[in-house]
Design a protein around this nucleic acid. Structure first.
Length: 520
RNA sequence: GGUCCCUUCGUCUAUCGGUUAGGACGAGAGAUUUUCAUUCUCUAAAGAGGAGUUCGACUCUCCUAGGGACUACCA
């Protein structure tokens, strides 16, 4: 077959926020398209009018914008294969449904949902197919006049695909190889419903993919069972020679327990399952998002890309450009991948450390505001004014000495840095560090050190060093850990001289005297 | 129940008949460090089970077991 332009699509249903599994599917489509210099299409599959959720479409678009996954055409992106919203393609589908009807590949069925339920209750494992369609009310069993009459009288009907039984249908899948299913186990799927004049997924999908010249269908494994139906549909339309190639991706599974990853697991286990925070318009329920949790889009992309695929090398930190270069559908794994969100945190850590020039000030500023308020209004005012003075300076300090810490999120900074802004006001005597370093003579030593510091006029690292190091050596003191107890209240923080210089003479001495008083 | 897909360390995975079965996350230990952390080093950890095919199987075939998906006038 001649080389076709690569055209792939991501076609979500706007029934809610975009699931992280959907994000990965879209990502793989994007990587594949870009690698081949092809197009990525964004199509909205809103053929179920009952499940429409306002805001979902915008949410999905914004998610991809954040993630850096760019579409070439589709809803909100333009293009000359539109419209890209299925609800706006009614007339197109009608035409093709009629074609199937005219060629005897489909038929009209009048059975109501209630009648179908009754049949299902009556016959075990009932399926609307070659075996049973003769028992039902459809254009195959009813006289033509009767059918016309029912339609004229306004009875609702559906169009069903007439599947010929006893045929092995082959699906050639890039990831799974050849999959064979016998057509006898397929049912006569509903292709179109007169009630809302809209097709169902299967029909709309095939018609759109054909008309939009889609070359590869890359989607989740949940579609594999219906792939034979789709193959049959291409054949029925006479489009078999331009049928897209299929690739069914393995599913994302729950990190613990069994089953595929679902909305619920996320917030239960403490990780988001959505790219962006989602406010459900009906229930008002809020689901957390990667963006709001402090993940960097690059990290999310990298993490997701490696869940079900890897380049076969030992490199794991990969930029979008590298992913595009290396991605290979045939190297995708076949088995579902447990969603190991702990590794996602590690990826964020990696990217956070890589952001040499990233301006952390806004995020950190927000963090301080969130955490700055805890006790009295006086203290609050003090902290706020201190933050204002220090925040810029602190950011510099940050890149110099604190950045290479075990930080996976900007929000991790707070517990690691609060002592820059807030003096310890209580000391946990059971704390391992305090217990070990605040011995009987600590108060006396600190008091002595405070006196020494009092004499320092040049309160800089060098200025203090010149005086304190001499004092420590002459008196055989090792004041650093007790000093740390005074200034930090825990076993953390930068070099003591740097910390003291940052805090300034007054604050340093205040904290020391306070600790001496409280700890004794 | 039926149909299809899948099965290597706890997790993500490499290996496309011949390897001491490799890497990463996580875990543990050690070194470095005035603290915490960083960094570095090291350790434990796997081919579901059973039959074949083959000189040789993690890799191919079959069976069993387990997991997953689908089974709507939803996508």
């Amino acid at each position: 077959m001649a080389e076709r332009r690569v055209r792939v699509r991501f076609a979500p249903s706007p029934t809610g926020p975009l699931h992280i599994g959907g994000v990965r599917t879209a990502l793989y489509n994007y990587l594949f398209a870009k690698q081949h210099g092809g197009d990525l299409i964004f199509r909205i599959e809103d053929t179920d009018s009952n499940r429409f959720v306002p805001g979902a479409e915008d949410y999905i678009i914004e998610s991809f914008k954040w993630l850096g996954i760019k579409f070439d055409e589709g809803v909100s992106f333009g293009g000359d294969h539109g419209p890209y919203r299925q609800s706006e393609r009614r007339d197109i589908y009608k035409k093709y449904v009629q074609q199937l009807l005219d060629t005897d590949k489909a038929y009209i069925a009048f059975d109501t949902p209630e009648e179908l339920d009754a049949k299902r209750a009556e016959i075990a494992n009932f399926q609307y197919d070659a075996q049973t369609r003769g028992l039902m009310r459809n254009s195959l069993t009813l006289a033509k006049e009767e059918v016309d009459k029912l339609i004229a009288e306004g009875h609702q009907y559906v169009v069903r695909f007439k599947i010929e039984p006893g045929r092995d249908v082959l699906v050639n899948d890039i990831i799974r190889g050849e999959v064979s299913i016998n057509s006898s186990i397929l049912d006569d799927k509903v292709l179109y419903k007169s009630a809302d004049e809209l097709p169902t997924y299967h029909l709309a999908n095939i018609v759109d993919d054909h008309l939009m010249e889609v070359s590869h269908v890359i989607r989740g494994e949940e579609w594999l069972p219906s792939a034979p139906l789709h193959v049959l549909l291409y054949e029925a339309f006479g489009w078999a020679d331009t049928m897209p190639r299929f690739a069914h991706l393995p599913l994302l599974l729950k990190p613990v327990g069994n089953g595929k990853l679902s909305k619920r697991d996320g917030d239960k286990l403490g990780f988001p399952v959505f790219p962006l925070e989602w406010h459900d318009p009906k229930s008002g329920e809020i689901s957390s998002g990667y963006r709001e949790k402090g993940y960097l889009p690059e990290a999310v992309v990298n993490f997701l890309a490696l869940l079900g695929w890897n380049p076969g090398t030992e490199q794991e930190v990969l930029s979008m450009e590298e992913l595009i270069k290396l991605f290979d559908l045939s190297k995708c794994s076949k088995a579902g991948a447990k969603f190991d969100y702990v590794k996602g945190i590690w990826f964020n850590h990696q990217y956070l450390l890589k952001q040499e020039d990233m301006d952390w000030t806004p995020a950190f500023d927000k963090l301080l505001k969130e955490n700055g308020v805890d006790s009295t209004p006086e203290k609050e005012a003090q902290v706020v004014s201190m933050m204002k003075q220090k925040v810029v300076e602190y950011t510099d300090t940050l890149s110099g000495q604190t950045k290479k810490r075990n930080i996976s999120f900007v929000s991790d900074l707070w517990p690691l840095t609060k002592f820059f802004f807030v003096a310890p006001d209580s000391f946990d005597k059971e704390d391992k560090f305090i217990k070990k370093n605040w011995k009987e003579n600590a108060a006396a030593d600190m008091s002595e050190l405070a006196d020494v510091l009092e004499t320092v006029t040049d309160f800089t690292v060098e200025g203090m060093k010149a005086v304190v190091d001499v004092w420590a050596e002459q008196n055989e003191k090792k004041p650093w850990n007790p000093w740390r107890v005074c200034l930090v209240g825990a076993g953390q923080g930068p070099d003591m001289y740097e910390l003291a210089a940052f805090l300034g003479k007054e604050e340093t001495l205040n904290r020391m005297r306070y600790a001496i008083k409280v700890l004794g």
